[in-house]
Design a protein around this nucleic acid. Sequence first.
DNA 1: GGTGGCAATTTGAACGATCAAATCGCCACG
DNA 2: CGTGGCGATTTGATCGTTCAAATTGCCACC
Lengths: 336, 336
Amino acid sequence: MSGRDANGVTISDVAAAAGVSRQTVSNVLNAPARVAPQTAARVRRAIEELGYRPNRAAQNLRERASRCIGLKIAAPIGVSNFLDRFLYSLTAAAGAAGYHLLLFAPTAVDEELAVYEDLIRTGTVDGFVLADVSARDRRLPWFAERDIPFVCFGRPWGQEDGPYTWVDVDGAYGIDQAVEHLIARGHQRVAYLGWPEGTGFGDERRKGWLRAMGRHGLDTDGLIGVCAEGVAVAAEAAERILAQPAPPTAFVCGSDTHAVGARLAGGLDANGRPRVEVVGFDDSPAATLISPRMSSIRQPLDEVARRVVGLLTTRVQGSDSPPEGVMLRPELVARE
Amino acid sequence: MSGRDANGVTISDVAAAAGVSRQTVSNVLNAPARVAPQTAARVRRAIEELGYRPNRAAQNLRERASRCIGLKIAAPIGVSNFLDRFLYSLTAAAGAAGYHLLLFAPTAVDEELAVYEDLIRTGTVDGFVLADVSARDRRLPWFAERDIPFVCFGRPWGQEDGPYTWVDVDGAYGIDQAVEHLIARGHQRVAYLGWPEGTGFGDERRKGWLRAMGRHGLDTDGLIGVCAEGVAVAAEAAERILAQPAPPTAFVCGSDTHAVGARLAGGLDANGRPRVEVVGFDDSPAATLISPRMSSIRQPLDEVARRVVGLLTTRVQGSDSPPEGVMLRPELVARE
DNA sequence: GGTGGCAATTTGAACGATCAAATCGCCACG
DNA sequence: CGTGGCGATTTGATCGTTCAAATTGCCACC
């Protein structure tokens, strides 16, 4: 009776074919224990033969859930394909949890909040992943007020004591490890090149450098450089540090972009080897694109994605679990 | 009566508040001409006051459409953040057309087709964008047989006469322009470095080089190099070409990765200027990451995305419009 | 003043699934 | 032999929207 086209097999069609009621078919799929084994087998055969797949819109309507996670993406800037890689991990993690990732790109900045609200109110998504949390991000309290489920990738800098759920990677630890690595390779004067003060993650990475240097009683005077993310400006900043009387022999950097700049500033010696050893952050393609390849600190993006999805799905499913912060450790990828 | 929580304002709530029936509210939103101006105003006020937004699942169920476009993403390989950039353009274009982008990442290769089918059968998406069309891609006939709407970014290489709809960028034209540019700058011996024969787009780019060189009566013997996408192998291949008695003074390349390899192989002269001039393809961050920055051929990704979305939405909306191919032109971004 | 026509609005049904409650068949037990 | 209980299955209602058809109110026209 119902449609015969590819998309048109409904639960009633299956019920008719198997000689049972639609609820029994539903039970076979959602509560198999309630159904007698042979009935279940018969129903399953009918499902197979008709190629039945439950209609998602109907399920969503009934269950008041879309099983979609919203993610805002912005025009790509910078050299890292960070989002590219995180997106894959996130999509895979969401898929494993029975969710899909739904992307949106607000056209104007001031409509961004409205778009978030709309997606929730229309039931298009069940919650959000925020992968671009900024210092004192005003979205966080705004979401919290409205009971909009969300999880941050990145600590809620400047509002750490708020009721927010997040997953982050310990940047200070990563940089600390990088300094250890360089010291173990004989370096004593290790410089830091990264963002100017004000970005939470940048400040933290710089602290990791200070901590490790301090632990080894090494001097840090004049060994710090800051600039925006950009190869050219990073190279300039690194040159200034290298021009000093007692220049560094190595750099740890806040990003691979800064690191590439430092490498360019250092140049190569007669044997084609870099004059300064540089460790980047993010292990982006830039780290292997440059020759010889560069060491970099890799964030465990798969793990981050799994944890983010796990936290978000429990929050979405209504259990008002308390806010939770998860800190993961990055890993130094040593090259050459 | 109905829910009072954020997500719970229904069309009936609005109708009650405005003193009309639910269908009138629906008409105000979907067919304003049918409603008397003052009634419409009253309804709109009620919508505003209650913050009503139509439930997407209910609309989807009723309209038998999800207004979602499916896109498969795979684990990122290579140095380009191509997908990153295209994804943004695509999301923005979809949004402008009233659609969302829904991502999925099949875990195993052999389940990929099943995942596509599932997404369509469950009504989770209305159609697909294929951004990774390979030569003789078996997905294309498979989709066509099943009447699954899709549009390719990239010509259906090896099955150009099939009933497929696609948008592509004329790579031969781009490379041709690059050769013209180099010749105008005084180069006579322009080499080509790109993929081995067999990838449709790679073969085509090489043809563009041959065509332009031939038009100017320039020799191409020994000036062609092929290798997989990778900086190290590209550098080796370029070195072999440069080691010849009459080496090239410039390269046009199939990708920015090949181009970076060529630049590394060429090295810098005493003044820090590249010994060979290189033009890449894709204008990825790699082009500006390398110093001095590199010229590259930019694909009009925004335009591609708009056309892809336009074609897909018309196909989705049931108009069985004939298959259509759209060819766009890339643009040389000359640097230094 | 009855009727036809038309614009504005309402009612009933459907989309396809799931939950809750009702019903059925069967067996055991007093 | 009637009844209680239990597992298996079915029926009715609902989620929130839109389409199609029915209804209402109003004016013009004969």
